[in-house]
Each structure stands twice: as C-alpha cells, then as structure tokens.
Design a protein around this nucleic acid. Structure first.
Lengths: 286, 286
DNA sequence: AGCTCTTATGAATCATTGA
DNA sequence: GTCAATGATTCATAAGAGC
C-alpha cells in the first residue's frame, strides 16, 4: 500500500473549508507561536492570538473524525518578567468551542536554548495539549511502549546493528524477530512526559520539533492508512514522518517556500519507500 | 545561629490574619486537592476551588515581602476523561489579585504512580507555579547549580576559534557566545524542569512530595536566616527541610494530628541541629 | 569501523540604547 | 513616555572531520 501525501499552499482557515467533515484521524501541529518567527509569519500578537486561532480550530473540529485526536504543541513566551497567559486562555476557549481537554503531555527538550537571566532559568519544556471530540477515541498504547530500565539498553548493545536499527529508536511497532521475544516482555507503557532533544544539526531544513515528536503521537493516535493533517506544516516534518509511517497526510502551509521544501521532502520519502518496500515486506511488522 | 520553627494549628485564612505584613521571604506549599487531602478542608469541589483559594492567597500576598516568592505545587485531576481547568483559572485569578505569574516549573516525577487507563498514560509531572509580587525578587541561582554534561570536559580543554567569538555574520540571529567564560567551570545553571523521584519508602509518614522539592526552592529563593511559610504544611516536610537549611519556618495545618507529626519532626531536627552545631559553624555556607 | 575532537546552532529573554 | 532595535548571555546535541 502506498499512502497519499499532499502539501497545500494557503491559510488553513480557507483551505479547510473545502474539506469534508470528519475525514481526519489526527491533527498534529505546532502553530506559529505568538510573537515568534516574526520574520516568516509576521508575528501574531499575544493579545490577538485566541481570536486568530479559534476560527481555525473550528475547522479542525469539523474535519476531525469523532474518534480522532488534536495534538497542539505550543509554549507561551516570557516577556517583561512574566509568562503570558494566552495559552491558558486558549485552552479554556477551545473547551468552550466544544473540544475536550483530554491531557497535557510535556515535551522535555533536553537541549534547550541557552541563556541567563536574573529571574528565570532556561525554558526546557513545551506543552503538547491533547484535545478530542469524544471521551472514547482511538489510542494505540502498545505502539509506543518503551524498554524498561537500563538492562534493556545493555542488551541492545550486544545485538547487531541491524537489529538495533529495526528496533526503531526504542519505539517500535515492529522490531526485529530475534529481539522481539525478550523485547515484548521488557517493554513498559510510557508516561505523559516525553524526553526528546531538538534536532539542531540539520542544515537543510531545521524543524521546529524533532521527528520523534510527531512520530510518537502518530503511532499513538493513528493506524497505518489513517489520515493525518498538519494545518501549519512549515517545512513538513509531521507530513514527512506520517508518510514514513504509511499514513495518508495533508499539510497546509501559508508560505510557498516552505511548501516547496515540504514537497521535496515528501517526494524523497516516496522514492525511499518504494526502494525499501521489499525490505519492509520480509520483515516482521506488527 | 539557631533558626525558629513553629507549627500552628488552624485554617491559614484565620491564622495569617494575625501575621505582620511583608515578613515572609518564601511561601512554598502543596495545597489540599492537589494533595488528595480533600477531606481535611471538607472536600473542596473543583468549581468552588478558586473562591476557596483566593481569600487565602490574599493573605499570602500581604504577608510576603516585596522581594519574596510564592511557589505553588499543584496538579489538576483528570475526571470523566478530561483534565480539570481549575488550575488554569486559578493562575488567571491570582494575576487579577495582583500576583505576577513569573514562571511555571515542571516537577518530573521519575517514579510516578502506577496504573493503566484507556485514554491516558501515567501522570508523571506536576506544576510548580512561581508567583512574585515584583519583577525583581531574590533568586540565588548559584545555590542550585548542577554538574555540566560530559561534553564540557573535552570541550574546554581546547577552545576553538569559533568558540571564543561567534560573529553575527555567520548567523542571522545576532547570537554570539563566549565559551572562554566557561573555562574552569564544571557546573551549569539548571532549567525549569526538575527531575526528582517521589519518596515512597518512608514508613513513618508518607510525604506528599520529596524533600528535594522544597529544598530546591528554599535554596533558590531564600538565604540562611530567612523566613519560610507553608500555609498547608501537612506532615511538615517543607518546614522540616527549611529548618535543616537554617531558615526560620512557620507551618500552618488545620488537622491537629498532622500538627503533632510535624512538631515531632521539627523537634527531632532541632535536637539534631544542636548536636551538629559545631560543624555548621566551621563549614563554609554560602 | 569505532573512537575523539571540533563546530554549528536552536520557537530564548532581559537590559540597554535610540527614535 | 512608549516602543522598537541591538547587545549580552548561555548549554546540550548531532553532524562532520580526524585518527
């Protein structure tokens, strides 16, 4: 099966109006933060953030399946010695709009931005807010199980590199046959805190978040063949990852140069998938 | 110097009214409800939480020094598949009351409560909300520095040209650095995420939070001899730690049996302090 | 291939200066 | 006064070069 990938240029507010209702399984996005990325996105003022966001989230609500999830990666900035409250207010506003605020995951950025100030330390976490339409929704907890304890890590070392690669950076929906036996038993469910480093060494396309972040939520909240939407797709990390995981994916991005980048990325991915298809077929995928 | 410790039985709303204004350097507390101590205050319903809290925080605001800090350890419960919003609303209400919401620290509980649910993973983090009265306040950042990562050792042996000065021409961000400043430094400032395990092996009294949590904030926001208040002191962990750190401490607790426990704890600590007094005098306290 | 060492850089924040 | 631009400060990570 080959999944479909599409990058659409435009404001998601307009683009989504043409979408059918209830066709998306997961909306995973990192919207422009207030007053951040001013050069590229013009910088939405904190005091106007909610009124800017709500019409868009109204469309999200419409296009999402009843069993779907909406994951919002966001963090309020500090200014003049205080944290802004617009993210808190956004959560309250989204609930009024009809969303359920199901959970707040924490992304702990292991390599956070440096700096020193008299009144605060470096900010090393961001919110991943989980909203749903219903109390029952799709959640594949087994897909994101993690190895327990250090001994699992030690065991991995003694195995061949190919096994480790297929182990898929500790979050496997399919691991190599020979390690599957012990791995199953030594896996535990994760918590609501994710420890990931940002990818900063990538010259071609620096993503706002590491690939592991969308990967985790895509595996958790969708199946192969499901439909993923990123309404602020930027350089297309989420879409790229979704494609790799054989989900159908739609990215919407207002800036045409980002659209181009994203299209290149997912194009490469398509070819890569075709090339490695044989490998996927023989391996023992769950 | 011997620090003063006091445990007062009563509702902090009443007790604090007899306190002088602006005499406290740090209010550090984990209030009921966050703590599952619902019954102690007659079971505060989420929808009444803020109206219950605000008169008390009004007293906190009054008794706190202008340079002081108020650290609130709290986490909203999940109920009926959703996270409650009363903590978010409390933050907004406290700002209206005159507090500055300076920062939100995350306490990552390394060994969190076990369990499995269909719609969420184990909750392994709590908020430590930092409020102040003014933009400038007391913060002893050096008191909580942590060892640097391994990379530092190798790095500092030989400073590359680009380590000494990073020119603006290389990056558009206007972000320069001077690693030469770090020479002979092995410690780094922490971030706003605290990794602490809960203490579970305590037979006498199970503490709501690990001693390391109040310890960190007490060191960070007070000096030796300063005055610490815990208006919901429970079994007295914060007060006990404050005493060990030679801060003056006042705990207020509504339940007399908890008061007894707390008094025993701090009594022990007092005797221990007297015994080790000689040691403290010669040691080099910052 | 497997080390060590080098280097770039990231959704940052506050103080200061200039308009 | 208020607001915008500039300067100063900081550390963990991964890619790449060298051995």
């Amino acid at each position: 099966m080959i999944s479909q990938t599409e990058i659409i240029q435009g404001d998601c507010l307009d683009v989504l109006k043409k979408f059918d209702s209830e066709g998306i399984d997961l909306i995973m996005t990192s919207p422009p933060y207030a007053d951040r990325r001013i050069k590229t996105y013009g910088g939405i003022k904190p005091e106007h953030y909610i009124e800017w966001f709500l019409p868009r989230s109204e469309q999200f609500l419409r296009v999402l399946k009843p069993t779907g999830s909406f994951v919002l990666n966001i963090k309020e900035k500090a200014e003049n010695g205080e944290r802004h409250t617009y993210v808190l207010e956004l959560i309250l506003a989204l609930r009024k709009q009809g969303w359920l605020w199901t959970e707040e995951y924490i992304w702990h950025k292991k390599n956070c931005y440096p700096g020193k100030w008299p009144n605060r330390f470096r900010d090393s976490w961001e919110r991943c807010l989980h909203f749903t339409k219903a109390r029952k929704f799709k959640m594949n907890q087994n897909a994101v199980m993690v190895p327990m304890g250090d001994w699992a890590e030690a065991r991995l070392k003694s195995l061949g590199k190919n096994d480790v690669v297929r182990f898929d950076s500790q979050v496997g929906s399919g691991f190599g046959k020979n390690i599957a036996n012990w791995a199953q038993r030594s896996m535990a469910y994760p918590t609501n805190v994710l420890h990931l480093a940002t990818e900063c060494g990538n010259k071609n396309h620096s993503a706002a978040f590491p690939r592991a972040l969308p990967e985790w939520f895509i595996k958790l909240f969708t199946d192969v063949g499901d439909r993923v939407l990123d309404p602020f797709s930027g350089s297309g990390t989420t879409i790229e990852v979704a494609k790799e995981l054989q989900r159908n994916a739609v990215g919407i991005e207002i800036l045409s140069e980002y659209c181009e980048k994203a299209r290149e990325l997912t194009q490469d991915k398509q070819m890569l998938l075709l090339q490695t298809h044989a490998k996927y077929e023989v391996s023992d995928e769950g």
